[in-house]
Each structure stands twice: as structure tokens, then as C-alpha cells.
């Protein structure tokens, strides 16, 4: 989706988002994460599971990859765009250029 987006359309989107004061995740199709301490993590806008073990979960994003490290990880529930993880989370890494939220 994002790959097919031209430079112009990307600028248009940024301009619209600035004018309308839209949240960035809506504007750029970015993942949104809600983390409760080290025990719960709620991620929106993922693009599928790449790897899952009790120590690590790697999720595909619209751009790049999200890596969740921890112990005893469980996917409580998973839908096509959302995932709810429980366990003892030690780190959340975003790969491929995007910054950590």
C-alpha cells in the first residue's frame, strides 16, 4: 500500500494531516501501541506474524518490522490488524528506520 504511494501523494497526506490535525497513525498507516507496564501490549495496524515464540514475537508492519522481546509471551487475542500480547515484556524494537513510540 505504502510502496505504491508516490512522493506527491505522500506530501499531500502530510499536508492534510497537518491541516486537519490528524493523529500520525491514521495519516501514515503506522502501528499504534498501548503498553501497560511490562505485562500487556496492545498493537494496532500490524500486517501479520513473522515469528512467535515464548521469548520473542516479530510482527510485520506496513513499513518494517516490530520485535517484542520478553518471557512467557502469549498472544491473548489476535485479529487481522490488532494483536494483544501478555507476558513479561523486556523490550520493544522497531526495525527499518522508524522511531520508537
Amino acid at each position: 500500500m505504502d510502496t505504491s504511494m508516490g512522493k506527491l501523494s505522500r506530501r499531500m497526506r502530510k499536508w492534510t494531516a497537518d491541516i486537519l490535525d490528524l493523529p500520525q497513525d491514521v495519516a501514515y498507516d503506522l502501528p499504534r501501541m498501548i503498553m501497560i507496564g511490562d505485562r500487556q501490549l496492545y498493537i494496532e495496524n500490524h500486517r501479520g506474524v513473522i515469528h512467535f515464540s515464548s521469548e520473542q514475537l516479530r510482527l510485520k508492519l506496513s513499513k518494517g518490522e516490530l520485535e517484542v522481546n520478553g518471557m512467557d509471551l502469549i498472544i491473548r487475542t489476535i485479529w487481522t490488524e490488532e494483536v494483544f500480547i501478555e507476558g513479561r515484556i523486556t523490550s520493544v524494537n522497531l526495525k527499518d528506520g522508524e522511531g520508537k513510540r
Partner: peptide, 23 residues
């Protein structure tokens, strides 16, 4: 196994309480 989870989600099958019991 991850492929299976992704495929199922894509077609609307609801899976939950996913955990690794061993590698």
C-alpha cells in the same frame, strides 16, 4: 506455524490464547 496463524486471521478465523509450549 506463524504462516498458519496469518492465513487464518486473513480469512477471519478467530484464534486466541496463542502460546509456545516448546520451540
Amino acid at each position: 506455524q506463524e504462516e498458519l496463524v496469518n492465513d487464518c486471521l486473513k480469512d477471519g478465523l478467530a484464534l486466541w490464547s496463542i502460546r509456545r509450549t516448546s520451540p
